[in-house]
Amino acid sequence: GKELVLALYDYQEKSPREVTMKKGDILTLLNSTNKDWWKVEVKATANDKTYERQGFVPAAYVKKL
């Protein structure tokens, strides 16, 4: 199945390749080969529509579930 990670801290994206997350968010882990930056998929809701974004977050800010 898919691997999930838990956001340990809030993170505000600093570039278009990154994604914003809030502490407590559960994210889908896409790639953890880089030890510093993990690629995740974030589900977000805006205007009653759910959309998914993929991007990088600092590996130290998340932990595998």
Rank of each mutant, 00 (worst) to 15 (best):
G1K: 13
G1M: 13
G1F: 13
K2F: 13
K2T: 11
E3Q: 14
E3I: 15
L4P: 04
V5Y: 07
V5A: 09
L6K: 08
L6D: 01
L6G: 02
A7P: 00
A7R: 00
Y9A: 10
D10F: 04
D10I: 02
D10C: 06
Y11N: 00
Y11D: 00
Y11I: 00
Q12S: 10
E13M: 12
K14H: 08
K14Y: 04
K14R: 14
S15K: 07
P16K: 10
R17T: 11
E18L: 05
E18Y: 05
E18C: 04
E18W: 03
E18A: 05
V19M: 07
V19L: 12
V19P: 00
T20Q: 03
T20L: 01
T20R: 05
M21G: 01
K22P: 00
K22W: 09
K23R: 10
K23S: 07
G24S: 02
G24Y: 05
G24I: 02
G24T: 01
D25C: 08
D25A: 07
D25F: 04
I26W: 05
I26M: 05
L27I: 07
L27T: 01
L27A: 07
T28R: 13
T28N: 07
T28V: 15
T28Y: 12
L29H: 01
L29A: 01
L29E: 01
L29V: 05
L30W: 04
L30G: 01
L30N: 01
L30P: 00
N31V: 07
N31P: 03
S32Q: 09
S32A: 13
T33E: 14
N34A: 07
N34W: 06
K35W: 06
D36I: 14
D36T: 14
D36Y: 15
D36G: 08
W37R: 02
W38C: 05
W38R: 01
W38K: 01
V40M: 00
V40L: 04
E41D: 05
V42K: 15
V42G: 10
V42R: 12
K43H: 14
K43E: 10
A44G: 12
T45C: 14
T45F: 14
A46H: 14
N47G: 14
N47H: 12
N47L: 12
K49H: 11
K49V: 14
K49L: 13
T50K: 09
T50H: 10
T50P: 11
T50G: 10
T50F: 10
Y51T: 11
Y51K: 09
Y51N: 08
E52W: 15
E52P: 14
R53D: 03
R53S: 05
R53P: 01
R53A: 06
R53V: 08
Q54E: 08
Q54S: 11
G55N: 01
G55D: 01
G55M: 05
G55H: 01
F56K: 02
F56M: 07
F56I: 06
F56A: 01
F56N: 03
V57T: 02
V57S: 01
P58M: 04
P58S: 03
P58D: 02
P58C: 06
A59F: 02
A59Q: 05
A59Y: 03
A59E: 03
A60H: 11
A60D: 09
A60Y: 08
A60G: 11
A60P: 07
V62H: 02
K63G: 06
K63Y: 08
K63A: 11
K63S: 10
L65C: 14
L65A: 04
L65D: 02
